[in-house]
Amino acid sequence: MNIHTYEKAWLIAAMLLIVGFIATITYGSIGLGIAMVDDEGGSIDPNEVFDHEEFSDPGVQQVGEDEYEVYVRAQTFTFVPSPIEVPAGSEVTFHVTSPDVIHGFSVVGTNVNTMVIPGEISTMTVEFDEPGEYGLVCNEYCGPQHHEMSGQLIVTPEEEFDLTELSAEAPDEVATGEEIEVTATVTNGQLEDLDTTVTAEIGDVTLEEDVTVAGDGSEEVTFVVDSSDLGEGDHDWTVTVDDYEESGQVTVGTDESDENDDTTDTEDDNE
């Protein structure tokens, strides 16, 4: 078999091209540290996704200084949670799975992109250096409303980020002269202590208390107001911590029965 000299030259060039391509990809893996989605995430019975300790209530968790884990359920035809909020300057590990069909999980305009396959957990670690807002899109056909399956990923400036949750409780009605107790529970999902101020406005009375919530802990603050200071009638109350706010209404006077059973629970978290 005689191969023409020119074609021999091309054969060598083609081999160089192929080896060069493989070398570039290898450089990306080793030199730049780019990792492939692989079998590290493990498997999961799709029927048990809703009972799984993380995927039943998916969301953002802090696991170390500037290190976060995000659990995401990709399901027909939505991402849970969405928007996902993480701080800039952090290393975020996503765990994504599906309870139903195959989906995609693509962070628009980035190289964060994976298949989501029922039975498997896709695990990816990403460093977010800068704040920004990204779209999330399912890029694998998953059914008739596939095109509606989108979401949002918000990378907030580090100093604005928290994993604080606030809930508040107050009676709906109290008799005139009794005390009104407003109880605020502040939960700190981050690992560092949270120094903050809880403010309660009950009617025209404003109360403040500084609290320190331990990392991965919660604190309860109770504000007490004498209802006779407010007078009979309906009074709005609001509890605020940083950007979080809970509110309700308390009625002073009128019916005095079963006052202790009627309470307003409010809850908010940062989702």
């Binding site: 969405s82 928007p83 995609g104 693509s106 628009v108 305009g109 980035t110 992109n113 807002e133 990204y134 779209g135 999330l136 899109v137 399912c138 890029n139 694998e140 056909y141 596939h146 095109h147 509606e148 989108s150 979401g151 949002q152």
Partner: peptide, 19 residues
């Protein structure tokens, strides 16, 4: 190259726009 997905009837989304 800017993440417009394949296999989609309406690649126009509420939350964001492709750049």
């Amino acid at each position: 190259l800017f993440s417009i997905p394949r296999r989609t009837a309406e690649p126009q989304y509420e939350e964001f726009a492709f750049e």
